[in-house]
């Protein structure tokens, strides 16, 4: 297990974060340095002021009201997973540092209950959405339109989420222990706590991290660059 964790939860983390950061910067740089189309591609009605355009872009990107109107169910799942993923991302912030104000406010036990509930909900919502998307891509025009990239991403995502959920719902290790491991990565003195090494949950962490590493490594080379591109593409809409 130690070797596995060293690969996925130590070196893999360094590698994937570097690839992700460099890759995304590179992609953004590529876009930024490709000359713009001289033709204005906006559609009407469009806001008259620059601020209005930015607000509309943010609304179109973060809420996508038009997409909601045409396919409400798909929109609901897409919205749910993006929000849940954001929630989970913030939740993972506990690995960096305990959310001290929250702990003061809720108490040690209160915090653990809150984390269990919020993290648990996010985990379930994400799982449901990913299963919905996988299912949707198995029939009709959705299947015809899909390419292996789509399934690969969904499979990786499924892996990340299911193993994360496993750690949360089945595993017995608490955030404080994971924090020890994560903090050690941050100071470049990687060390995996004995509690993890001694528990079968260690395997779950290893798998969770393996999927996450692969997901992050592939991210900049996939359609997921929409995480950045959606903003600029939606801005073009009101040019």
């Amino acid at each position: 297990m130690e070797t596995f964790l060293n690969i996925s939860a130590v070196y893999g983390v360094y590698l994937s974060i570097s690839v992700f950061v460099i890759g995304m910067s590179w992609r953004t740089y590529q876009w930024a340095t490709t000359p713009k189309s001289p033709v204005r591609l906006g559609m009407f009605p469009k806001p008259k002021t620059g601020a209005g355009r930015v607000l509309k872009m943010l609304k179109d990107t973060l809420i996508a009201p038009q997409s909601a109107r045409i396919e409400p169910l798909m929109w609901a799942f897409a919205f749910a997973i993006h929000v849940a993923a954001l929630g989970a991302f913030i939740g993972h912030g506990r690995l960096l540092h305990e959310f001290t104000p929250l702990v003061t406010w809720l108490g040690e036990d209160g915090m653990n209950t809150f984390a269990a509930w919020s993290g648990g909900t996010a985990g379930i919502v994400m799982l449901a959405a990913v299963v919905f998307w996988i299912a949707r891509r198995t029939f009709g025009p959705f299947k015809q339109l899909s390419v292996p990239e789509d399934y690969l991403l969904l499979a990786l995502l499924f892996g990340v989420i299911i193993m994360g959920d496993h750690m949360r719902f089945v595993g017995t290790i608490h955030a404080a222990t994971y924090r020890e491991w994560f903090q050690s990565l941050l100071v470049f003195k990687p060390e995996i706590p004995a509690e993890i090494l001694g528990s079968s949950t260690g395997w779950s962490l290893g798998a969770h991290m393996l999927f996450t590493d692969l997901f992050l490594i592939y991210f900049p080379f996939s359609k997921l660059v929409h995480a950045v591109g959606a903003f600029s593409a939606n801005l073009v809409r009101s040019e």
């Binding site: 590529q30 876009w31 189309s37 798909m74």
Partner: peptide, 17 residues
């Protein structure tokens, strides 16, 4: 090729919305 085209080709999620 231009910025818009490149982005359109890069980011489509094939969501079929």
């Amino acid at each position: 090729m231009n910025r818009q085209l490149k982005q359109y080709l890069d980011i489509c999620a094939r969501c079929a919305i």
